[in-house]
Measured scan of single mutants.
Amino acid sequence: MAAGGDHGSPDSYRSPLASRYASPEMCFVFSDRYKFRTWRQLWLWLAEAEQTLGLPITDEQIQEMKSNLENIDFKMAAEEEKRLRHDVMAHVHTFGHCCPKAAGIIHLGATSCYVGDNTDLIILRNALDLLLPKLARVISRLADFAKERASLPTLGFTHFQPAQLTTVGKRCCLWIQDLCMDLQNLKRVRDDLRFRGVKGTTGTQASFLQLFEGDDHKVEQLDKMVTEKAGFKRAFIITGQTYTRKVDIEVLSVLASLGASVHKICTDIRLLANLKEMEEPFEKQQIGSSAMPYKRNPMRSERCCSLARHLMTLVMDPLQTASVQWFERTLDDSANRRICLAEAFLTADTILNTLQNISEGLVVYPKVIERRIRQELPFMATENIIMAMVKAGGSRQDCHEKIRVLSQQAASVVKQEGGDNDLIERIQVDAYFSPIHSQLDHLLDPSSFTGRASQQVQRFLEEEVYPLLKPYESVMKVKAELCL
């Protein structure tokens, strides 16, 4: 049975990233139509530049190519590739079939990587351009969430054990800070992308030097003109047959890092959902379990974690691919890159769409948070109580021993009897502590235990987050809708 299948058929496997999760716009960027249309555009740009620099290419040939950029006979191309065992030459023939007058000058002087690699770089750039505003929107939604809850005390956790208090907004800023680093890295790697350009079979530009009869300047002009037509500021000066596969490492490393950030955020949300302090959106008709109707599973956060793990592992592909590119190139890269580049971007696209949807509907339960604080705060307040007693004339050592005994009794009630923490009640009825009984409410005010959390939130948002989001103001209103 021949390899390949009808990918629109229910009898043929289709990647869930495309069929179930990723956005239509990201799927289109990695589609065959987008790819092969870009090949034709690159052939047109090459012909236009070659004509401008004096090669015998007519206006009629150029116009014929322009008129057929979208006229792609995919069936013919597939048949040609089956016959020739070469995808680029299959599309040269297919393009030439609908451009008979231009057929002889299509791909003039070029090698397969002229269309293959340059198209990949265009796709990487455009895919990054799709991700950047999506990530900015996630940051914006979380920034709104953090600002609104900047002063809401909550129990902090280290080692997932109760620690000092923080605020809900401050905790959210930990998430935002990681995503801001990801946004900066995505922008950097996007701006650092260079075009492969017009380089020939081993990167020496020998074929173009021959076409222009040894004119170095025209060869350099050709490279520059096509690079500018493709919208790049610069091209690699040095290439082998391909652009260095280190570029793929750079791009997928940034995406993998984004995956790590999203995994951490969504894990926190899942843990908070278990504590009943916070939940992701839950639709009115949504079913959490087929057997347990009360369940409210954090399905979206779980999906993000599941896909983020996949995204983090994909960076190993370009690392290994770059390491086995012998001399000017081997074909070890080809099949692998067809999979890992598309999957990385479709996965990143999915987790950003999902995280935006989550961040637009996060639900906080202040009463649950308050109750958990009441359970733990008495123990945390013991040092403040000791200091207040010393100020009232008591002995630190005597007070410490009193607190120690009462704390152990209260802990026994919590752990052995399943009761509430009654340390404060014990202190309130103990005559030894009568000098500070009137101060206990103040000493137990949760806001006095959150330090500068709310001020940190305000400063972080104003100095770091809002300036970073400013270039994306025009796209901030787009909502994230999930079908599944």
Results as ranks from 00 to 15, higher is better:
368 V>Y: 04
304 C>A: 14
111 T>V: 00
243 Y>F: 14
110 A>M: 02
351 I>E: 01
242 T>V: 09
154 T>V: 08
355 L>G: 03
396 R>S: 04
241 Q>Y: 01
345 F>M: 11
90 A>K: 07
473 E>L: 14
58 T>G: 11
18 A>N: 15
142 L>Q: 08
100 P>I: 09
405 V>G: 13
44 L>G: 08
180 C>M: 13
387 M>A: 14
355 L>M: 15
176 I>D: 02
246 K>A: 05
52 T>A: 13
83 R>M: 10
318 P>D: 00
180 C>I: 15
387 M>D: 01
190 R>P: 02
339 I>Q: 15
406 L>V: 09
432 Y>T: 07
42 L>A: 03
212 F>R: 03
183 L>R: 03
346 L>A: 11
417 E>N: 12
379 F>K: 07
71 N>C: 11
300 R>L: 14
10 P>A: 14
400 H>C: 04
452 R>V: 09
295 K>W: 01
451 G>L: 02
368 V>N: 01
277 E>L: 03
131 L>V: 08
91 H>I: 03
155 L>V: 01
153 P>I: 04
379 F>A: 04
303 R>K: 04
293 P>M: 02
280 E>Y: 07
142 L>R: 01
396 R>Y: 05
51 Q>V: 04
64 E>G: 09
180 C>H: 09
449 F>H: 09
18 A>D: 15
312 M>V: 08
308 A>T: 11
367 K>P: 06
16 P>V: 13
21 Y>W: 15
477 K>L: 13
59 D>A: 10
396 R>M: 01
409 Q>P: 02
16 P>K: 12
68 N>Y: 07
219 V>T: 10
282 F>H: 13
422 D>S: 06
336 N>S: 14
470 K>F: 14
395 S>V: 03
225 M>G: 04
132 L>W: 14
404 R>G: 06
153 P>F: 02
79 E>W: 13
307 L>D: 00
155 L>I: 03
167 T>S: 07
71 N>I: 10
311 L>A: 04
378 P>T: 04
73 D>R: 06
452 R>I: 11
362 L>F: 12
316 M>E: 05
216 D>P: 11
469 L>G: 03
381 A>T: 06
222 L>M: 08
4 G>R: 13
25 E>A: 13
92 V>E: 06
144 D>I: 15
209 L>F: 12
8 G>H: 15
35 K>R: 14
101 K>Q: 14
83 R>E: 12
258 L>D: 01
119 T>D: 02
426 R>N: 09
449 F>D: 06
219 V>A: 06
183 L>Y: 13
12 S>Y: 08
479 K>I: 11
132 L>S: 13
140 S>W: 15
114 Y>Q: 03
215 D>W: 07
107 H>P: 00
